[in-house]
Design a protein around this nucleic acid. Structure first.
Length: 423
RNA sequence: GUGGCUGUAGCUCAGAUGGUUAGAGCGCCGGGUUGUGGUCCCGGAGGCCGGGGGUUCGAAUCCCCUCAGUCACCCCA
């Protein structure tokens, strides 16, 4: 016996009904995105490290301590993507997709990697579904993107979802606010904790997330980001809000909503679930990224998008008891009684060719055991290919739901099975 | 990365103060029904008690380390 090997920390297998739910979730997402005109693209999991350092931002936790980075055999530094937007923008730039009509609207999904400590709803390999719309600056496009995510989440049956929106303005507006804010906080709360001191140094806007009640109290009476925004930013944000209102999408303005990636500008938003534990309640989020395309080496074009966490959504669905897995793995199981294996396999093939999900019992076990197996895997119909019946040109069809059982001519198999399935 | 809690059969969990062959329920396999499941009855298989080291005559039980999970912080999906 070799030593049992387990999956590494923070990664896991998705098996059985969980996998079926996963498939259903993904299918719903891409279908929703397609209805909004977002076509699916597939981008690599591996990128040059520099892409993330430049786009996500050197000061972010992701880049500073959470990336899976390693040299390839030629010594180039590669990184397992910690998020999807950077790669999507790189794809857009690399293929000059701005030449194909703007905005470029695309959806994507897949595994992301961050070397964080593991918790429920937080893994080292986790999965996101997202969209990006690049090339046009129009508040109506913001509204479309935010609405798409909202439609998808609520369309799953989730009721306890809150949409938070904010505007963090242009970089220069933010810089001036950060200066005011930093001074204000330092003066009001001179003995800041180490966490907040670090925040102020590396990413001052995140002081707004402080857990220190004194800081929160000070912030309540302090300068607001909104007050540093220019008229363009303000009117853009107002248009977004009125656009959401016009479509009946409920939102909450949260002026402390600051996202952790450097490339965000202007509109930011987040979907949270009240059904999840407070610490891990974000289902997803996104925002505008107006300097990113240029930063990656493309033209100066704006973009907006979001990413949703598959694991978080699945957790929320579980908590709200929606997105129940559908039927069994197979509809029909073909059982063998006596020396009829050859005929049984032909019947199986015929059903499969006809598009019926079909399995059969292997291993030459007793009919009783075969029936138990049929029940176990959730088959709806059992066909018994029996030696005695076959002599008369018939097989036995049993409806496993009702227990009704009839003999049918073997050549009518597909047709009779369909009749049972349809009722 | 830091701290708390947890780790016994496929799953959920019992195993006071260390003491003989580590148990239950469910599940699985077989039989009762030589061709009939989901109910019932009977039987069986399946455990380096997460891993390593230590204390002890003796460790699932106590100590240390390690791995994994979980919760919180941090951060985010």
């Amino acid at each position: 016996m070799t030593k049992p090997l387990a999956a590494p920390k923070g990664v896991y297998d998705v098996v059985g009904a969980d996998s079926a739910r996963w498939d259903a979730l993904e299918a719903r997402f891409y279908e929703t995105a397609a209805r909004y005109g977002y076509a699916r693209v597939r981008i690599p999991v591996l990128e040059h490290t520099d892409l993330f350092v430049r786009s996500v931002g050197e000061a972010t936790d992701i880049v500073r301590k959470e990336m899976y980075t390693f040299p390839d055999r030629a010594g180039r530094s590669l990184t397992l993507r910690p998020e999807g937007t950077a790669g999507m923008v790189r794809c857009f730039v690399e293929h000059s997709l701005d030449q194909q009509g703007l905005p470029w609207k695309a959806s994507y999904g897949g595994a992301m990697f961050r070397a964080e400590n593991v918790q429920r709803g937080r893994y080292r390999q986790f999965h996101q579904l997202g969209v990006e719309a690049i090339g046009v600056d129009d508040p109506a496009l913001d509204v479309e993107v935010v609405t798409l995510g909202w439609d998808f989440l609520t369309g799953l049956g989730l009721a306890d979802v809150t949409l938070l929106v904010n505007s963090i303005g242009r970089p220069e507006e933010r810089t001036s606010y950060v200066g005011i804010l930093g001074k204000y906080v330092e003066q009001t709360v001179p003995d800041l904790g180490p966490d907040d001191r670090e925040r102020l140094k590396l990413n001052p806007l995140r002081i707004l997330d402080s857990k220190d009640p004194r800081v929160q109290e000070a912030l309540a009476g302090g300068p607001k980001l909104r007050e540093s925004l220019g008229p363009d930013s303000l009117s853009h944000f107002e248009d977004v809000q009125s656009g959401l209102g016009a479509l009946g999408v409920p939102y909450v303005v949260d002026d402390t909503l600051v996202r952790g990636l450097d490339y965000y500008t202007s509109t930011t938003f987040e979907y949270t679930s009240g059904a999840l534990d407070a610490a891990q309640n974000a289902l997803g989020g996104g925002g505008h990224y107006d300097g990113l395309v240029e930063m990656v080496g493309g033209p100066s074009l704006p973009g907006i998008g979001f990413a949703l966490g598959v694991e978080r959504i699945l957790l929320a669905c579980e908590a709200e008891d929606v997105l129940a897995p559908g039927g069994g793995v197979v509809d029909v199981i073909v059982l063998v009684a006596g020396d009829t294996g050859t005929v049984a396999r032909l019947v199986v093939k015929e059903l499969r060719d006809a598009g019926v999900k079909t399995d059969t019992a292997y291993g030459g076990r007793s009919l009783k055991a075969q029936f138990k197996h049929a029940d176990r895997i959730g088959a709806r119909v059992a066909l018994v290919i029996g030696e005695r019946d076959l002599d008369r040109g018939v097989i036995t069809l049993r409806d496993l739901g009702s227990g009704e059982q009839v003999e049918i001519p073997v050549e009518e198999t597909v047709q009779r099975v369909r009749e049972v399935m349809d009722r």
